[in-house]
């Protein structure tokens, strides 16, 4: 099945799962009608909860989904959908208070009925989820703590909201209506259980060993992993995996990294990781022989997904590993397709893979265009950020037919997307992967 067809099927399923819980409430005998505003408030609450529930699907790292949609777009969608869910759920009590101001006293948990307090707790838990996600970096919340907060508060938000609904018992009076909503909650919790229990168990049975660890230019390390007691997995060049290093796969410390090795070679996996954050700054200290758990492959950022007459790879700094995976795979497959690699870095000393790229130029129909912010003396290459003029200077006349892959930090991706629009590249030919997506 084509990727576009799969995307449409997923979207149809998404809107069905989103609307079905609301429609269920309107089938069969309904409770006595009340004022419009009160019914609207209740409907918004139900809608918000249905949208919250659907959020379990995009974030569950389900491979049929991650292999179809770009993961950074999925997270982009997830955060904004959660904001919409929060707005809908917040509108539920606000509308009630607006049309019945005396109901504000229900905010006092000491005097309010427990079913109302449950609703309030759910709303506050959702607010905490959103605040810790949007302001994780300004609040200096570590990635692990943020994930722990997410893992705990997500089921709390949903279960407590469900108890609130069952406690109010207005629309869910028929057993089968209760059954649908409780069934949905069970499915949502099942996805969490899959992520936290069955998936780690499967990873535990399929460990990898670190067989080599070597420093690269640009303060990066290449880790070479070999499957231990199993065959490993096949992947498309450019895909990524979640790595758990020196930790239990049941813990919070897994991190997404692009696979850098060729998809056409052995079942060894290579990851090239720059020393950037807390976790990655100690990546070179991981001893050879250590067990690593690899949850993958994920992602659709690949020449195998988006074929074309030629490829343009545009990377900023440590956005280069997926590009290397694609170039190494093209070399191993003896590809004759033309390729261009625009590679932005602060300075020459920080260019990871620079020697190997020179070799790849001999083996492929490849042009490598280095763009340095602080070039050395006598540098005759490109300088500054990758922009429309630079792209025009190096790309052929049929540049609108080529397929583009961009990977790097979000500001760099945004700037390159604008430059590609400027030179008339159709958006459908452009694919992006943000390396700091979570």
């Amino acid at each position: 099945m084509k990727a576009a067809t799969k995307q449409w099927l997923w979207l149809l399923l998404y809107f069905f799962v989103l609307l079905a819980p609301l429609i269920v409430l309107l089938i069969g005998p309904r409770p006595a009608p009340r004022e419009f505003w009160r019914e609207l408030s209740v409907a918004l609450g139900f809608s918000g909860l249905a949208l919250m529930g659907v959020q379990f699907i995009p974030t569950a790292r389900l491979r049929p989904l991650t292999n179809v949609f770009p993961m950074d777009d999925v997270y982009y969608f997830h955060l904004r959908a959660a904001l919409i869910a929060f707005a809908l759920v917040l509108a539920h009590p606000l509308i009630l208070f607006l049309f019945n101001p005396t109901a504000v006293r229900l905010l006092n948990p000491l005097t309010a009925p427990p079913r109302i307090t449950l609703g309030l707790v759910s709303l506050l838990a959702l607010a905490a989820l959103i605040v810790t996600s949007i302001f994780r970096k300004p609040l200096k919340i570590s990635y692990e703590l943020w994930r722990l907060v997410h893992v705990i508060l997500t089921p709390v938000t949903i279960i407590v909201a469900m108890l609130h609904m069952l406690g109010v018992d207005y629309y869910l009076s028929l057993p089968w209506q209760r059954g649908v909503w409780i069934g949905l909650t069970v499915v949502w919790m099942g996805i969490i259980a899959h992520n936290r229990l069955t998936k780690p168990l499967r990873l535990l049975r399929r460990p990898y060993r670190l067989v080599d660890s070597k420093p690269e230019t640009g303060r990066a390390w290449t880790l070479v992993l070999r499957p231990d007691g199993h065959e490993g997995f096949r992947f498309m060049p450019g895909q990524f995996a979640w790595l758990t290093i020196q930790r239990s796969p049941f813990g919070m410390r897994s991190h997404p990294f692009s696979i850098a090795s060729s998809a056409a070679s052995s079942n060894q996996l290579q990851f090239t990781i720059a020393e950037l954050g807390d976790f990655t700054s100690r990546i070179g200290e991981v001893p050879v022989g250590e067990v690593v758990y690899v949850d993958g492959p994920h992602g659709s950022f690949s020449i195998d997904r988006y074929d074309g007459p030629g490829y343009v790879f545009i990377a900023g700094g440590i956005g280069s590993p997926p590009m290397l995976s694609m170039l190494r795979t093209m070399r191993d497959r003896r590809s004759h397709k033309p390729a261009w690699f625009f590679y932005g870095n602060p300075e020459w000393e920080s260019v990871t893979f620079r020697e190997e790229l020179e070799t790849l130029k001999q083996e492929l129909d490849l042009q490598v265009i280095h763009a340095l912010e602080r070039p050395p003396a006598q540098w005759d290459g490109e300088t500054g950020f990758i922009d429309a003029d630079m792209l025009r200077r190096h790309l052929p006349d049929n540049r609108n037919e080529l397929v583009y892959f961009i990977c790097g930090p979000q500001p760099m991706i945004a700037a390159v997307l604008a430059a590609l629009r400027q030179i008339g590249v159709p958006p459908n030919n452009v694919h992006t992967e943000q390396y700091d997506m979570v």
Binding site: F36, W37, S47, G48, H431
Partner: peptide, 30 residues
């Protein structure tokens, strides 16, 4: 699917839920 498509799905989600909530309230209110 790209960022533009993701934006479209977000807007469709918002509009679908707002409209269906309105329809729900209209159907159910007196």
């Amino acid at each position: 699917m790209g960022r533009t498509h993701a934006r479209v799905v977000i807007w469709l989600t918002f509009l679908t839920l707002m409209l269906s909530s309105l329809a729900f309230a209209l159907l159910q209110s007196r």
